[in-house]
Design a protein around this nucleic acid. Sequence first.
DNA 1: GACTGTAGGATTGTTGAACAATGGCCTATG
DNA 2: CATAGGCCATTGTTCAACAATCCTACAGTC
Lengths: 250, 250
Amino acid sequence: MAYDPMPIRRDSVITQAAQEICRLIEAERLGPGDALPTETRLAQLLGVSRNSVREALRVLHGLGYVEKAAGRRVIVTAAAPGGKGVFDESVIVEAAPIANDVRSHIAQRCAELAAARLSAAELAAMEGALGSLEAAIARKDMAAAKTAHDRFHGLFLAGARNPLLLAMFNQAQGARLSNVSPRHNSFYDPRHLDQHRALLRALRRRDGRAARAVVRKHFQSLGLMLEVAARAGRKPQSSAVVPMTLRAAR
Amino acid sequence: MAYDPMPIRRDSVITQAAQEICRLIEAERLGPGDALPTETRLAQLLGVSRNSVREALRVLHGLGYVEKAAGRRVIVTAAAPGGKGVFDESVIVEAAPIANDVRSHIAQRCAELAAARLSAAELAAMEGALGSLEAAIARKDMAAAKTAHDRFHGLFLAGARNPLLLAMFNQAQGARLSNVSPRHNSFYDPRHLDQHRALLRALRRRDGRAARAVVRKHFQSLGLMLEVAARAGRKPQSSAVVPMTLRAAR
DNA sequence: GACTGTAGGATTGTTGAACAATGGCCTATG
DNA sequence: CATAGGCCATTGTTCAACAATCCTACAGTC
């Protein structure tokens, strides 16, 4: 069978509904304090089930666009995200350097906290993750490298024992509303690996200042790579998205 | 009827389920790459419907803790947020200064972008919001002041035309997973109001640098207030939460 | 007249079951 | 051995019903 020449990546109903509700907010000029249509009405408008509307609203709630309370209509808390599709490429490129700064800031604080709080077992686990990362790189197993890398980072951030910081970091990590997920795939950069090792050493010494410094440097070099990529005009992997259109009420 | 001496603030089923799943991740020592139990199984374990589990998973997805894909099990992406209940007070207090820095950073960038991109109509709307804010303060109408204040901030951030920055800002604004929502209620601080006016002036002049400077100062003073509050030991409003316990499989 | 409590409607919260869509694995087939 | 197809597990989506909650209006009481 011939390959589908245009493998349309259809966003899930919920994602589309969330974007559509954003557009509705903007189209109706709804601002902070204004109420959205009822869930039932939204379901009719978007032509999806009420459960899907609810999940979409939960996404928007997580993003901080709306406020929910039992028995009351859903309230808009922040201005609607602009007219150009909620999450298109230019938006991501523009936010990337800021996101990097934000991640750096949070990670630095996590470094201080983790230096004081990581248990011996967790440090050992990080050591192990670093080992598998090296091994994976040696045999050029990208998938394993990514897993090991994620595990190391996860242990590090979790070591701060602050889920709020973790959530903020994750949020800045990428737009999870949409299907595009820019991955820099920089696991095999040797400097990168050295920095990880330096971080682990500092954490073992319980030296928060040193750990913080390592993290700062790490994100500086990441930011540099980001700039280079942006200058080269290389865009993150794109996905063709089929827009959902508003349907008339039934 | 006598007042209920202990007005228990019961978190929604979904919120509890989300927390419970976090605890499960930690208890089972699940790390990046590991799969969660199936939705049906989770529903059995937590004693809630599968729809509720799905909404909970969507929250966790929004927070960046798990990854979802049709047909495949839900995958853990980040380490589980620590053992001390997912969102307790100390966590929030600890993250507050960082969150303030993060907000400041993002808002500064938004200031530059908004200075270039705000339309005359939007500037006029901001002017209007500022006017109603003053009026509300004058007649000490807290609710109206909050609405006007939110509207001003919303218009400002939306003026940057970058929903990603907006989402990151909102995320850092507070923990929306839990019911606690620290409000600083500093609308009526005169310095605060002056800063808002200065910001609007800078935006009108399309002076990105000046707008940025105003925003930086604004968040500096906010951070100071935060420190004072923390030193005074004043905690954000707390809510008694009834924990949900894991139930045996049926 | 001001306050209070109560009834009612509107809206969100939660559930259960059913079916569709997707992905992965295994097997038959060339 | 490669591969095409079929099965099964799992997530995606819908529907309909009922519970819980909030707001408002109205009546009653002091």
